[in-house]
């Protein structure tokens, strides 16, 4: 069977967001796994309760383990874990707001309202990212 190929319709917003949703979903699972393994290395088995372990897994911020029995948190407050948090905030917020956009657009069919809601969602997304990044970079 000889291979057939046609020009692709090119990148469009719906396709990009569909792709992003898949990639960010998988990336968040991977980042959570890295956080989980990090917590185990930190000593989660003996020095953390389940809640603390989950908080660190899904958002590896040193503040989340302050009240646990981890003897020395200082080595964990570094740029590597900050990057992990930034990625989690970015993927989580973008994935979530895009999901919300899809849900709203399934119920709201007027193009004008859809555009207005897209704008509102974009502003809320930027505020969420801004607040998240501020928290990560200043804590």
């Amino acid at each position: 069977m000889k291979p057939r190929k046609v020009p692709t319709p090119g990148w469009n917003f719906e396709y990009l967001m569909w792709l992003f949703t898949r990639i960010s979903g998988a990336a968040m699972l991977l980042l959570a796994l890295i956080g989980f393994v990090g917590a185990l290395i930190m000593g989660a088995r003996y020095h953390m309760d389940l809640g603390t372990l989950m908080r660190w897994t899904f958002f590896p911020n040193p503040n989340h383990v302050l009240n646990s029995d981890i003897p020395d948190i200082a080595p964990w407050a570094n740029a590597y874990w900050q990057i992990m948090q930034l990625l989690l905030v970015f993927f989580g917020a973008t994935h979530g707001f895009n999901g919300l956009r899809l849900v709203l657009e399934e119920y709201i069919h007027s193009w004008g309202w859809q555009l207005a809601l897209r704008l509102v969602l974009m502003i809320l997304w930027l505020i969420t990212l801004g607040a998240g990044f501020f928290l990560v970079l200043t804590s």
Binding site: R4, K5, V6, P7, T8, P9, Y15, W18, L19
Partner: peptide, 11 residues
């Protein structure tokens, strides 16, 4: 069909 949109491959 999604895959064809992404890659242009029809085989």
């Amino acid at each position: 069909v999604r895959k064809a949109i992404a890659t242009g491959r029809l085989d």
